[in-house]
Simulated assay, not measured.
Amino acid sequence: MVLVTACAPTQTGIPRAGAYTPNLEDELAGVRGVDMRKDFADSSQSVNDYWTSDRVKDARPPNMPRPDGDSTGGTNEPPISVVVHPSTGPLGTVAPDANGTSDAGKAWSMAGLSRRTVGRLYFTFDGRNYVCSAAVVNSTSGSVVSTAAHCLFDTGPKRQWARNVLFVPGDEAGRAPFGRWTAASGHVTQQFLKGAFSSDKGTRGSGWQFDTAFLKMRPQGGKTIQQALGAQGIAFGEAPEGLMVLGYPTAPPFDGTRMRYCSTPSARTAQEVYGDYGLACSMTPGCSGGPWLTRFDPVKGAGYVVSTSSVGDGRMLYGSTMGKTAYDLYLQVDKK
């Protein structure tokens, strides 16, 4: 069951009461033109066959350059306040990070739900092997994984969709303790697909304000990925109460073999960069698509995803905010 709390647009913080199960037909009323969908033709068998141990080891992250600054400010989206609780149930007040505030990309203990729901996302662009990060998020279908849009759609000159998409939750140096899950489809917003560009000089275009994507995963052994592993919560239009950022940085000085984290007791909106969230964090490419969790419980390993890692420079990391557009996309992915 998906538990969602909806509250007045003026309310801030994660709501504590008023949970209900949404009627997706009603929620989808009036939602048009958000979803740019790619149905993946690669079968589960072919994807698993493709990702040999050597290819997994050699996968490299896509570039995560610092923005060139031509698209500043926020998205000016309509206000929204929707919260979907993690599969472990609603979380209470903010729990402090047991390891303290960190900006150094320290190895994470992979406690509780975080070990089963956060992992590495493998894919190919133009026959080349790449890797990002991703997380299972709670949904009615039990099949939704969040990541960054640039991990599914190449914003370079060729402008192509990913292939051979494979998610490995709890990845341990290429080992898959919770299985290898393949994607049936990938979904990004029209704004990103049509308005996000990148080159060796950096990223440009207003589409980078919407660097959020969702995957619809195929079931395995008769179970959805959420039934098998659980799911993180997700919140749209909510002010974060502290942040725990998880991912698998792969570019030096990291090697992608460990889940790592940065954390902060507060978050700021970095208006100079796409109006996104920003925090001091030295995680490198490969962490792209990893969840930014608020109200994170370090014992349960659970929180609410409010963003995913998007762009950075090795000192600062920025994550696209999840607002009305991201919520509409999530609803459409969950419905299909």
Score class of each variant (00 low, 15 high):
residue 290 G to Q: 12
residue 174 G to C: 10
residue 221 G to H: 07
residue 124 T to M: 10
residue 219 P to K: 03
residue 208 W to M: 08
residue 259 M to F: 01
residue 100 G to R: 13
residue 183 A to D: 04
residue 103 D to L: 00
residue 213 A to K: 09
residue 167 F to M: 01
residue 335 K to S: 09
residue 165 V to F: 03
residue 229 L to D: 02
residue 6 A to Y: 01
residue 194 K to H: 00
residue 188 V to I: 09
residue 45 Q to S: 14
residue 264 T to Y: 01
residue 75 T to A: 14
residue 174 G to N: 11
residue 157 P to W: 13
residue 49 D to V: 10
residue 126 D to A: 09
residue 100 G to E: 12
residue 226 Q to C: 00
residue 272 E to H: 09
residue 81 S to D: 13
residue 197 F to L: 04
residue 207 G to R: 04
residue 274 Y to V: 02
residue 181 W to D: 02
residue 255 D to Y: 08
residue 79 P to S: 14
residue 221 G to W: 03
residue 152 L to C: 12
residue 84 V to M: 08
residue 249 P to A: 04
residue 34 V to Y: 03
residue 256 G to M: 00
residue 133 S to R: 07
residue 203 T to I: 15
residue 270 A to L: 03
residue 227 Q to R: 05
residue 190 Q to C: 00
residue 182 T to G: 11
residue 233 G to F: 04
residue 54 D to W: 05
residue 197 F to K: 14
residue 293 L to Q: 08
residue 107 A to L: 05
residue 290 G to H: 09
residue 181 W to C: 06
residue 249 P to G: 04
residue 105 G to A: 03
residue 336 K to F: 12
residue 259 M to E: 09
residue 262 C to D: 06
residue 133 S to T: 02
residue 122 Y to T: 03
residue 326 A to S: 15
residue 107 A to T: 15
residue 166 L to V: 10
residue 236 F to P: 01
residue 78 P to H: 04
residue 188 V to F: 00
residue 151 C to M: 14
residue 292 W to H: 08
residue 111 A to E: 08
residue 19 A to S: 09
residue 51 W to P: 02
residue 23 N to W: 01
residue 50 Y to G: 11
residue 268 R to G: 15
residue 53 S to Y: 12
residue 56 V to N: 04
residue 323 G to L: 02
residue 121 L to P: 03
residue 227 Q to M: 08
residue 16 R to Q: 12
residue 208 W to E: 10
residue 25 E to N: 02
residue 299 V to K: 14
residue 147 T to E: 06
residue 139 S to G: 12
residue 54 D to F: 06
residue 118 V to Y: 05
residue 100 G to T: 10
residue 247 G to C: 11
residue 159 R to K: 06
residue 136 V to A: 14
residue 244 M to F: 10
residue 181 W to R: 12
residue 145 V to D: 08
residue 325 T to R: 11
residue 219 P to I: 01
residue 69 G to Y: 05
residue 291 P to C: 12
residue 149 A to D: 05
residue 147 T to H: 10
residue 265 P to I: 04
residue 210 F to M: 06
residue 266 S to L: 12
residue 141 S to A: 13
residue 113 L to N: 06
residue 173 A to W: 01
residue 296 F to L: 08
residue 221 G to N: 13
residue 285 P to Y: 00
residue 201 K to A: 08
residue 51 W to S: 06
residue 27 E to S: 11
residue 117 T to S: 09
residue 332 Q to D: 08
residue 29 A to R: 13
residue 234 I to A: 07
residue 56 V to K: 15
residue 209 Q to I: 04
residue 79 P to D: 15
residue 4 V to W: 02
residue 6 A to R: 12
residue 109 S to P: 08
residue 58 D to N: 15
residue 320 S to G: 15
residue 88 T to D: 07
residue 114 S to E: 02
residue 185 S to V: 07
residue 326 A to D: 10
residue 176 A to I: 12
residue 330 Y to H: 05
residue 57 K to R: 15
residue 166 L to P: 10
residue 207 G to F: 02
residue 85 H to A: 13
residue 268 R to N: 12
residue 113 L to D: 04
residue 192 F to D: 03
residue 126 D to R: 11
residue 210 F to Y: 14
residue 257 T to Y: 07
residue 108 W to S: 13
residue 131 V to H: 01
residue 262 C to R: 07
residue 14 I to V: 15
residue 58 D to V: 05
residue 217 M to I: 09
residue 225 I to A: 11
residue 72 T to V: 07
residue 260 R to Y: 05
residue 192 F to T: 07
residue 145 V to P: 06
residue 304 Y to A: 11
residue 223 K to C: 00
residue 29 A to G: 00
